[in-house]
């Protein structure tokens, strides 16, 4: 019986969503899944400038779409920040942890939600102006935003 149900479902419905199901299993593929921005529809999306300042002082300047999160920016622009955003923005880790300037922290449109706070508690080297990059959505006002990426355990290891 079980098998019949399975067949039934497979035949009738998988076709409808087959596109999503035929994904290759490789881990690298997740990366591209994660890169799907939340504002894909906005073809002529407005751009803002964002700068990530790494632990070693290196500055990664990049253009980002309004409506994207900082995690989207890192993924879509292939910024080389090791271990950033391991959970793909699902608020289960704190690897997209960033420090903001106090003035930037204060002007962000949204305060961290409880789920983000729970994860910030577990962030490495937490400060008063820490946020998770996956929860910061860029607005036009944030043009020129400068974000510091904290040291990670991997840096400490080297």
């Amino acid at each position: 019986m079980l098998r019949n149900i399975v067949k039934n479902i497979t035949a009738k419905s998988l076709r409808a969503v087959g596109k999503n199901n035929g994904l290759p299993p490789s881990l690298s593929h997740q990366r591209s899944l994660a890169s799907v921005s939340k504002t894909e529809l906005a073809l002529k999306a407005e751009k803002v400038k964002v700068t990530f300042v790494l632990k070693d002082g290196k500055r990664l300047e990049t253009e980002a779409k309004v409506g994207d999160t900082l995690l989207d920016v890192v993924v879509n622009n292939d910024l080389n920040i090791e271990g950033y955003g391991a959970c793909e923005g699902t608020l289960t880790c704190s690897t997209c942890h960033v420090f903001l300037k106090q003035s930037d922290y204060d002007r962000l449109p949204e305060e961290p939600c409880d789920e983000e706070r729970d994860m910030l508690d577990l962030a490495y080297g937490l400060t008063d102006t820490s946020r998770l990059g996956c929860q910061i959505t860029l607005t036009k006002d944030l043009d020129g935003l400068e974000i510091q990426v904290p040291e990670t355990i991997n840096d400490a290891r080297n």
Binding site: K55, G57, Q102, E111, D128, T129, Q148
Partner: peptide
Amino acid sequence: QASDGGLEIGTKSVTTSPAR
């Protein structure tokens, strides 16, 4: 870190939340 990036980062421990 504060000097590296030129950011004003709170480095002291506080007893109240900055956000709430």
